[in-house]
Design a protein around this nucleic acid. Structure first.
Lengths: 195, 195
DNA sequence: CTTTGCGGAATGAACGTTCACTCCGTGCTT
DNA sequence: AAGCACGGAGTGAACGTTCATTCCGCAAAG
């Protein structure tokens, strides 16, 4: 087994093109609303080629899900858990807003395909790995009397729910999100969870 | 002349049976994931019968959307806007939780089909009629220094986002929602928006 | 020349929708 | 009172289309 010597035609690049096209189409038409021929056209490959890289449409959507979920997790995971709860929330909020701005399709896709029945176990498992660091941090912060002593899972649901509401309202142009509005929103979130 | 025969023959009841089946299936499989034959079987009618009541699958999903959105609006609209902001939030929260408990499929359907491109203008217009009373009340409360002076649309997005996060987390069994947890969640929401 | 992997037509299943028909309650005729 | 003709709701097989997936010929790489 030699290292990849096919430099002229990079198969990895084609795979990425298919994943990118799938992200776009699945994000705004959903899984069942997207056809393989449409997908092939967007990725600029033939329909049959997709099956060289992915066993089925389901396998493809799972590959997209796992790629995007890991990208989101990587973008949100804190570098340093030793600061105050307030600063941690700030870091989370800034990172989440940056991700929403830079990869809006990723967020839309993940929101749209959350907990769907065609997702396999590997995809589902990523959910918990994602929230694990936040959970640990929240328990710490609760002991230091920095945040409310509710079920930490519930606090995460509330914070993530607020962030989602913000993103959705902004996408629907119901309100603008200039720096002032963002700062106000961040403060709302902090007030919601602080002790 | 039998009761069951008369019941089956009532056209309004058949229409409702189709709408009920559509609510269930659309809520958990989505629009494109639900087929007319499946729908017909669930509603206990023949496929062709559905087209006696609705012009197309799109017309059907719009009929379901409008019925459920109006039911939600009716359940959430406040009886009396002259109390304090805190009590208004309490009334909203109790009503929303009651709706989530009694009609979970309705909430799932509305969340799932929010702003989809197969929804017609009439369906879209219901969205704004829904938030209008809340907007008026929020502006009042802001003048009385009871809630934060942010964009009211943003406050609505945050509150509704928290409620959605709560419902979703509960449905996924990530945490329990006993009366104590509900009271804590309500307090979080209040702290998020209070002045 | 052999090997490899892509393109795109071919395939059968399943889709939304239609339509010729059945069935039954109702009211008119006798 | 009984029979008949009518109208419209309900049916489900059939239609043309589109789907996910397969397959084979070809073009380029080794």
């Amino acid at each position: 087994m030699r290292a990849s010597q096919t430099a002229t035609r990079d198969p990895e690049q084609k795979r990425e093109a298919i994943l990118d096209a799938a992200l776009e189409l699945f994000a705004d038409r959903g899984f069942h609303g997207t056809s393989i021929p449409d997908l092939a056209e967007r990725a600029k490959v033939a329909a049959g080629t997709i099956y060289r890289y992915f066993a089925s449409k389901e396998a493809l959507v799972n590959a997209v899900y796992q790629r995007e979920k890991m990208a989101l997790a990587k973008a949100l995971v804190p570098k340093d858990m030793s600061t105050s709860a307030r600063l941690m929330l700030h870091a989370f909020f800034v990172a989440a807003c940056r991700y929403a701005r830079e990869r809006p399709l990723s967020l839309a896709f993940l929101e749209h395909h959350h907990h769907k029945d065609y997702l396999d176990q590997a995809s589902r498992d990523l959910e918990q790995r994602m929230f694990a660091p936040a959970l640990i941090f929240l328990r710490q912060a609760q002991e230091q009397m920095a945040v409310k002593k509710c079920e930490p899972e519930m606090l995460i649901a509330l914070v993530w729910g607020m962030f989602n509401g913000l993103v959705r309202g902004h996408e629907e142009k119901r309100f603008a999100l200039d720096p002032k509005a963002l700062a106000e929103a961040e403060e709302c979130i902090w007030q919601a969870i602080r002790a």
